[in-house]
Amino acid sequence: MKPTDRRDIPYLFFVLPAIIYVGYFAFYPSFSGVYRSFLSPHGGFTLNNYDELLYYNLGAAILNTVIVSFGALIIQLFLGLVVASILVWEFRGKKLFSTVTIIPMGIATVVAAIAYSFIFEPRGGYANTLMHALGLGGINWYSNTPLSLLVVMIADSWKNTPIFTLILLAGLSSIPRDLYHAAALDGAGVLSRFVHVTLPNMRKFIAIALIIRGVQEFNIFALPLILIGEHPPLLTTFVYDLYSTSPTVYISLAAATILLALMTVFIALNIAMGGRR
């Protein structure tokens, strides 16, 4: 044992309670959930729980989750970049504006979902008031799956744009101002400076924001539950639907195991990213 290692031992005891806690409340239930998803109600090993999932809409749930995650990430990335690029400037009222941009973080997901449910109502609603004022007809926002998913993406993007803003702002402020001056002297316009100076320097921060939010995006639950219920299903609402409607817990455990398996890919990617810094 290296001498530094021995000096570590007392400090390990400080970390131990937290490790035991997450072990007991996060890892143990997940592992036991995976294990029990392979059990029949009588206790024997079986794959029936997974077979049964196919009768429900597992494929659609996975597809919808992927679509919502990608769509919402693109919207958030765009809006986050817009807000962060505004916040690197100095202007009157900047402090007030930066407070406004983090407000969605202070709004509970449930409340955000309710606000958006009034904006996008099946008949009428505030979005349709706007359409009406522009001389367009009203739209039933839940008449088909893509439109329903779009509503979820929009509401989720509103709630989570601040996180993108904060991460991207950290990246933008790390770019030396001199680079912009040099580019401006060379005659580069605003757009060209954005493409040739901002984007290359931001690549790492954009990747980090996308991967971190990607993980959370896969987990969104309250928002789709309130806006679109269990149909069309996302993986989380799919698990919840099975959990609250089927007589035994085993099928929902199988669905949860599939969600966990997909998440593991993201988590591994996340750790690999963190390790490279």
Partner: peptide
């Protein structure tokens, strides 16, 4: 990293097994 992983696990995946416990 161990602590971080718990933050990335879907709440519903943890909650359903815990509910029976």
């Amino acid at each position: 990293v161990l602590v971080l992983i718990t933050n990335m696990m879907p709440g519903i995946v943890v909650a359903v097994p815990i509910s029976t416990e």
